[in-house]
């Protein structure tokens, strides 16, 4: 790893100042992607600004039918949270399946969605649930937040502080893991909400996480795994790589969608 200046501000204001004062700053939340990336010299920030010292960043709280999860809440904290479980057990289960136990003790929800890895789990969960991403500047709907592979609507110096999720009627997640990396080769999150059915797919799209209109329409008409059979699944825009062809991923989307609906009940 190249030399880097480390900052651990105690407030959002100090964090913004540290980012602004650096040549090229990266926000550090759990480091489970950023640090390996820096070791490989794929990222070489001059400064890292650790947001875990900012008050409230790891809080998880329920108000009414909404759970708000601090950006620096770890995957293990979300997985084991009674608050998250009371609003959306499927999101807790998703968190419990990220990486491995040691990674879940450090990796955070804010870090995961800010990175928007095309094979990450949380983008599917938050897009599927129609979550709201709260930053130090504004609130962003998940539909507007994930803008492409490794890219988001975040501006320079904008810091995710929390994520809010409203209680769905039903929700479920299923993923097919790459046997080596254990990342999702395809992951599908399904949710039945007061605003309709939402289906988000990770691991498959060339532009990262996306919603699938065909699956949403089919499940809105008939919320059952069988409803997936009749959905036309195009391989257009899906990734082809050494792990799987676009056609294979298209097939996996249907299989994972069925499993996710079955898991949702």
């Amino acid at each position: 790893m190249y030399a880097v200046n480390y900052h651990k501000p105690a407030s959002i204001e100090d964090a913004v100042a540290a980012i602004g004062g650096a040549d090229e700053a990266k926000i550090l939340a759990g480091g489970q992607t950023l640090l390996p990336t820096m070791k490989q010299h794929l990222a070489a920030p001059s400064d890292v600004v650790d947001i875990r010292g900012i008050g409230g960043m790891t809080d998880i709280a329920v108000r009414g039918d909404t759970v708000t999860i601090g950006a620096a809440a770890t995957h293990a904290a979300v997985a084991g949270s009674n608050e998250v479980g009371s609003i959306c057990p499927a999101l807790a289960a998703l968190a419990a399946g990220i990486g491995d136990p040691a990674v879940r003790h450090m990796g955070t929800i804010g870090g995961s969605i800010a990175n928007n890895d095309p094979a990450a789990d949380y983008p599917a969960g938050l897009l599927g649930l129609g979550a709201t991403i709260v930053t130090n500047q504004r609130e962003i709907a998940a539909d507007d937040f994930f803008t492409g592979m490794f890219s988001t609507a975040l501006e320079d110096g904008e810091i995710i502080t929390a994520v809010s999720v409203s209680k769905p009627d039903r929700a479920g997640y299923a993923k097919f893991r790459n046997p080596a990396s254990r990342y999702a080769m395809v992951g599908v999150f399904v949710a039945k909400t007061g605003n309709g059915v939402r289906v988000a797919v990770t691991g498959a799209g060339e532009d990262g996480v996306f919603r699938h209109a065909g699956l949403e329409a089919a499940l809105a008409g008939n919320w059952s795994p069988d409803a997936v059979d009749a959905v036309e699944m195009s391989a257009d825009g899906l990734m082809s790589d050494i792990h799987a062809s676009a056609d294979y991923r298209a097939h996996l989307i249907k299989v994972m969608a069925k499993r996710a609906v079955a898991a949702a009940g």
């Binding site: 651990k8 480091g31 040691a102 003790h105």
Partner: peptide, 16 residues
């Protein structure tokens, strides 16, 4: 173990 929890020490900054 960091504060009682298993952590990959190659993927954590000492300064943090």
């Amino acid at each position: 173990l960091v504060d009682g929890k298993a952590v990959k020490s190659c993927t954590a900054l000492a300064a943090s």
